[in-house]
Design a protein around this nucleic acid. Structure first.
Lengths: 350, 350
DNA sequence: GTGAAAGCGCTAACAA
DNA sequence: TTGTTAGCGCTTTCAC
């Protein structure tokens, strides 16, 4: 064991109190913007804070408060692999953070059902919850519910799919337009000189993330690979069974499908559809989300690339951000940016 | 402002002391494995700890100790873009963490000079430093210096390039063999049916990361793209000027170079060499590290893809790990795994 | 409006 | 070998 290193510390509220010639309690009142302090005193204290370059020790503050953070995740009740992984990460982080005064909980709401989502948001007890992370569709009722929650002092972040028209504090997720562009570029480059049609699988036109991906995909396809013809989106509603039914229909009606962009959840259904399809030439397939299934599809060559976002990062990021907002602390944007991960079989994590 | 949420807390040392019928000080002694406690008492305390599921509150412990962590980074004195970014991240994190009882410092050592590195490591004052992160070559003298540091109770992590034969506690960096494989796969797929020669740029045969990349690259090339001929590595020593001189020589002696794998630092020199080269067909270029220069090369199309590791993540990870080892706390391996990032112009962070 | 004092969970002198 | 006590930086009663 190393001896403790005790050194030149940062200024504390004691220093502020001394410099500003007030008591600790007054400094605390100013720091936490509590009422009952004369304007002149507030200024004295703020001057001392600026002078000394004081920064509050959040750990000590939380210790004194005995504060426990309560954060809630609201996810669609779909049970595709991505959501299973997301929920597993939430549970894992919850266990890890029990000892850091933080509690996470997770609620499921029927997928693509804005009313059910709005009701769930309305049911949040603002006196018991410090922050809510929402993964769901962007509709007026959802916006209203978010506004209501914000008005009650709860931090709100959108997760995976943004809700930019709402008053959410932050969006934790990737740039879905850029993800769609990336898929197009990979598909186009991997196809090289080959000519034919491209099938696109999406989830729901209600889901902002799905729409954005299609937008970015079409943009790059039109600009850089104008010789490839893109078919209309198949709406799979992230439902493996539905996808398994839809895919063969399209493949049967076009015998020159050389590329597939699976832009939403439900790879399971796509892979099952593949089992009964015997194309002349194996198509290039770009899918989303690295999951047990897509990993094995990469390994066997059924998928050529997978575009993904790190579930662990999503959850840690959401929690860090809800904490930062709860404490009015700054955010490291570079750390919170969710990367558009590209996985080939060669760079999958073991 | 929300009211503080005060709730069912975790057990504290007070609970342990009560259950084990000893004093706080004794509990503290057992927790910190300090001597001077009877075996029987130790067991009583440990029993209570297990019974209550006690987990130490590190924040409170650090507050009480007034402890300040001192971590040191040792980097090569080369000044390529990657190192500039790495050092910038260290400085930025240092500013951020001043208020979390953590101080970071950074020392530079002549690149590819094992003796100079060993001397620098030997010069570390173990009584003032809790952990050291080393980015440098793996040689016997370096190993010995690391062993010496470890013997003095300092945590050691290898950074970017591993030193597996040493007693380093952890390696923070990516799997370079897999990175080489990834480069080969991208190059091969982007080339499609085109046939010709591939030039490979490396840094130094002394650098483990460079060797490993070449290894992985050759493996996938031989297995999946046997029709492409790979030329011998050009050793650029991460020196832009040297690279600018070497590249045209190779291109002049082979008129069918259709692909380039720039596996080390010094993209600057490569890009300058391109300015005077007029090939019949633009080659496919895969480079390493997303930097201002490689970003613009992606944007203009001079590079087709960049394989990268996130500098911010490297530094944060190294610090989290040194902290965890200093406190004998567990590590979240999934969070610390450094990803092999693939960037196309479409998925670059803005 | 402002201040004094107790206490959050833990550590470290100093006693016993 | 063990216990008592002060105090880390901050918050929060409760007086004044």
């Amino acid at each position: 064991m190393k001896p403790a290193t005790r050194a030149l510390s940062n200024p504390t509220i004691n220093d502020i109190a001394r410099v500003a010639r007030v008591s600790l309690a007054t400094v605390d009142r100013v720091l936490n913007a509590r009422p009952g302090v004369r304007e002149a005193t507030v200024e004295k204290v703020n001057k001392a804070i600026a002078e000394l370059g004081y920064v509050r020790d959040t750990a000590a503050a939380n210790l004194a408060r005995g504060r426990i953070y309560h954060f809630m995740f609201i996810l669609p009740s779909n049970s595709n692999e991505f959501l299973v992984m997301l929920e597993a990460q939430i549970e894992q982080l919850n266990r890890r953070m029990r000892h850091e005064r933080t509690r996470l909980s997770c609620t499921r709401v029927t997928a693509f059902d804005p009313m059910a989502l709005a009701e769930t948001i309305d049911a949040v007890d603002a006196s018991k919850v410090d922050g809510v992370a929402i993964f769901g569709p962007e509709t007026p009722s959802v916006r209203d519910s978010i506004a209501h929650l914000k008005a009650n002092g709860v931090t709100v972040v959108s997760l995976v799919a943004d809700i930019p028209s709402s008053e959410r504090d932050f969006y934790v997720g990737l740039d879905n337009v850029a993800a769609g562009r990336t898929a197009a570029q990979l598909l186009g480059r991997f196809l090289g000189e080959t000519r034919g049609r491209i099938a696109v699988l999406t989830g729901s036109m209600l889901a902002r993330d799905h729409l954005e991906r299609r937008l970015g995909f079409d943009e790059v396809m039109a600009r850089e690979f104008p010789d490839l013809e893109i078919l209309a989106s198949l709406e799979g509603r992230d439902d493996p069974a539905l996808i398994e039914k839809l895919v063969p229909e399209v493949l049967a009606s076009h015998d020159d499908v050389i590329g597939i962009y699976s832009s939403a959840a439900g790879n399971e259904g796509l892979l099952r559809a593949f089992r009964t399809w015997q194309p002349a030439r194996r198509p290039v397939v770009i899918a989303h989300e690295l999951t047990p299934l897509s990993r094995s599809a990469l390994a066997t060559g059924a998928f050529d690339a997978v575009i993904s976002q790190d579930c662990g990062h999503l959850v840690r990021s959401a929690v860090r951000i809800m904490r930062a907002y709860s404490d009015s602390m700054p955010i490291n944007l570079a750390q919170e940016r969710i990367r558009i991960d590209i996985y080939l079989k060669e760079n999958m994590p073991q």
